[in-house]
Write a protein that binds this DNA or RNA. Structure first.
Length: 582
RNA sequence: GCGCCCGUAGCUCAGUUGGAUAGAGCAUCGGACUUCUAAUCCGGCGGUCGCAGGUUCGAAUCCUGCCGGGCGUGCCA
């Protein structure tokens, strides 16, 4: 197995460091970073830890360190050309041909980290999307769906065994409300025409009318009791009907968003597992009865309620049943919950309960929280929460359709002869929305802004897609867009010396994925593909491919192929399509 | 009240876990298409990193205290 140029640099740095600061020096304390200014070099090593260990001033140590690196580089060809001390830093430059070959070959031959990583033994359950099907699939559901789907693919790519789970909100007391709402105002024709919208309308109406008529809430509670009784009654049949129709309706958005699951086990799936869950929790001796409810008391926070005083269960009970089931079924090491930040307390409670049970898996339970979707309130002149109750929810399909329509308009204007315009518009429009949601740190609130959502310029999905399309176009015109094309033996790799910025960026792919996994943050990858696209757009302006001298052209075509593949790979991990043309 | 989160350019955000002169996009101003897609590129303008202390060779980053905003705070999810 070949060792990447990055790893070879790391071992060179380690060897040089030990020869300066002694064999006991902890090489891990010496970070290899990127210089502030790209003109300084390809990689930079701050020498402060080394200076401390060597007991000398940082600039002096840096100087000696750089000299040692140069010596070592002479003995080990194909890694570095220069190592220069600048004050307390050492800036190094990769040997150009080696850099180019390492990166391009790595991508095209799908070596790690560009291709799939060798399997590790970590098993990960990712709970995401999990829409409440008594409520509409609105824009707010996008976040969990898109973040979770991206994490699922990133974990898979990096060698984890992953189980993506849609913990559908298809149970619970709000179903009592929906049942009563449907009994009062339900309409079969409207339900089948547009299930989500119809259920949304009657749900909002229920919320509104129950304010004036508390009897509605009582009836809803009774309906849920009857549902949870386990009998094959009218409530159950209606529930089953609404659930099936809703679930079917969700498949459209899931397809468009490239969201896939290993299992769709909603809350109702645990209905027959609640009893044994409660028994085990009681047997463990961690439950108490408080104010008529069965709870687990937890230091420093409110108790976790298992059975309400009216005898019905609650979401925490079902989440615990799910944890028992998932431990037995998937033998997970990590259980990630991609759920909004407002449920922070609930997941802290879950984790505490599991810790009280003494499970070794407790540490692996992690709430992958994210910010709210806000809407601008012109009256209050500030960003406020969407409220389902208020009825100002924005449907996801509406947003996607709007973006696709905008993409279609731009295609007609810029590329009227394009084949398959509708398919390309779908890829661009949906890609823009997905990309936008994965652009920032999860915890940031998302401000719902049509202008920003429908912007296809700058740091956007279409910007990255466009870079990919330009690369594909070059390959098409060169007639060499065959992924199976072998890399010729006579490639002059140093012809790519002027593509250093692109190559150095591509070199980062592995550590980018590591950071994504480490922090459960897809935006790091989003940011990476944006940088790569930017480097490509700049490069293509200055460096013509098809008209270059044969040697240069051959090398550049390989670079183009590699960059195109990596952009496609990165976007695919995020859930964004890469049109060949746009 | 208490707990958690956020505060960086006019706006939206990065800042690789404490390293070099704090970076992008949008907006704005100027420039680049008879050459592989101008959904692009190049340049200008724009900063008391909320405030005040502290830690040290070095702080947007760590610690403390304030200020402002958000979320949560026992039977919704």
């Amino acid at each position: 197995m070949t060792v990447s140029i990055k790893e070879r640099l790391a071992s060179l740095v380690a060897e040089a460091a030990r020869s300066i600061a002694g064999p006991a020096f902890d090489v891990g304390t010496l970070p290899i970073g990127r210089p502030k200014d790209a003109s300084h070099g390809d990689a930079a090593i701050p020498c402060f830890p080394l200076a401390k260990a060597a007991g000398q001033a940082p600039p002096a140590v840096a100087k000696a360190f750089a000299e040692r690196l140069v010596e070592l580089a002479k003995e080990n060809h194909g890694i570095l050309t220069t190592a220069e001390a600048v004050g307390p830093f050492v800036n190094v430059r990769y040997e150009r041909a080696a850099l180019a070959e390492d990166v391009v070959r790595g991508v095209l031959e799908r070596r790690e980290p560009f291709g799939p990583w060798k399997p590790n033994d970590t098993r990960v359950v990712i709970d995401y999307s999990s829409p409440n099907i008594a409520k509409p699939f609105h824009f707010g559901h996008l976040r969990s769906t898109v973040i979770g789907a991206a994490l699922r693919r990133i974990y898979k790519h990096t060698g984890h065994t992953v189980f993506g789970i849609n913990h559908l909100g298809d149970w619970g007391s709000q179903f009592g409300k929906i049942l009563i709402a449907f009994e009062e105002w339900g309409d079969q024709e409207a339900l089948h025409r547009d299930p989500m919208r119809h259920l949304y309308e009657i749900y909002v109406r229920f919320k509104r009318e129950s304010d004036a008529d508390p009897r509605l809430n009582e009836r809803a509670a009774e309906a849920f009791r009857r549902l949870e009784s386990g009998e094959d009654n009218a409530e159950r049949r209606r529930w089953q009907e609404l659930r099936d129709i809703s679930l079917e309706a969700f498949q459209g958005p899931y397809r468009r968003l490239a969201a896939e699951f290993e299992a769709i086990t909603g809350e109702s799936f645990y209905e027959d597992k609640i009893e044994s869950t409660l028994a085990q929790l009681k047997d463990a001796g961690i439950t108490t009865v408080s104010e008529g409810a069965l709870v687990v008391e937890i230091d420093g926070m409110p108790p976790c309620i298992l059975v309400k005083s009216d005898g019905t269960t609650i979401y925490a009970t079902r989440d615990l049943a799910a944890l028992y089931y998932r431990r037995a079924t998937y033998e997970f090491d990590k259980a990630l919950y991609v759920v909004g930040a407002e449920q922070k307390l609930h997941f802290r409670q879950l984790k505490e309960v599991i810790a009280k049970l003494g499970w070794k898996e407790a540490d692996g339970i992690e709430h992958i929280d994210f910010g709210l979707v806000l809407t601008f309130d012109p009256e209050q002149k500030r960003w406020t929460k969407f409220s389902t109750r208020g009825g100002n929810a924005i449907f996801l399909d509406e947003v996607l359709d709007e973006a696709v329509a905008k993409a279609r308009t731009i295609i007609d204007e810029k590329n009227p002869d394009l084949a398959d315009k509708d398919a390309v518009a779908e890829a661009i429009g949906v890609g823009a929305i997905v990309f936008n949601d994965l652009k920032n740190t999860r915890i940031k609130d998302v401000k719902f802004d049509w202008d920003e959502l429908l912007s296809f310029e700058g740091e956007t999905g279409p910007y990255v897609q466009y870079a990919g399309a330009r690369l594909s176009s070059i390959l098409r015109k060169a007639g060499s867009d065959d992924a199976a094309d072998a890399i010729p033996a006579d490639i002059v790799w140093c012809a790519l010396h002027d593509a250093e910025r692109v190559l150095i960026t591509m070199l980062d792919f592995g550590s980018v994925l590591e950071r994504c996994v480490d922090k459960n943050e897809p935006y790091i990858l989003t940011s990476f593909v944006t940088s790569l696209a930017s480097e490509i757009h700049s490069y293509l302006r200055e460096h013509h491919v098809l008209s270059a001298e044969p040697e240069v052209k051959a090398a550049r075509l390989l670079l183009v192929r590699a960059a195109r593949d990596l952009i496609r790979e990165g976007l695919a991990l995020l859930g964004v399509a890469s049109p060949e043309e746009m």
